[in-house]
């Protein structure tokens, strides 16, 4: 590896930081993804079904409704947070006039 690309070298420090923050966000969202669908919807569905909210057994609701809504929100949160992160590190894509693409 050439010297200039060593992680932590002054010029590339931002790359390490950017990537770390991206990964942290990604892992956080994937934990929610797993917990809601596989956790609430499959692994603990029987326990949650004991609770009935608005005619729906809760585990059944998570498996057939709740997890789908959660997925949509997760992607939106990811896109919005990445917008902020890209901007903070100056790697957001802009056209010649400086408008965001």
């Amino acid at each position: 590896m050439s010297e200039s690309r060593q992680p932590g070298a002054p010029d590339n420090d931002w790359r390490v930081q950017y990537w770390k923050r991206n990964l942290r966000l990604m892992v956080g969202l994937l934990v929610v993804w797993f917990a809601v669908s596989f956790g609430a919807g499959i692994l603990f569905v029987e326990q949650l079904n004991e609770i009935v909210i608005g005619d729906f057994p809760l585990g059944f609701w998570f498996a057939q409704q709740g997890s789908i809504y959660t997925f949509v929100v997760l992607i939106l949160v990811y896109a919005l947070r990445m917008d902020r992160l890209d901007e903070e590190f100056g790697v957001d894509e802009r056209d010649a006039e400086g408008n965001r693409l």
Binding site: W19, N22, D86, V91, D92
Partner: peptide, 11 residues
């Protein structure tokens, strides 16, 4: 590595 950064150049 470059796949990680959306823009071609930093601002």
């Amino acid at each position: 590595e470059n796949m990680r950064y959306p823009a071609m150049t930093r601002r």
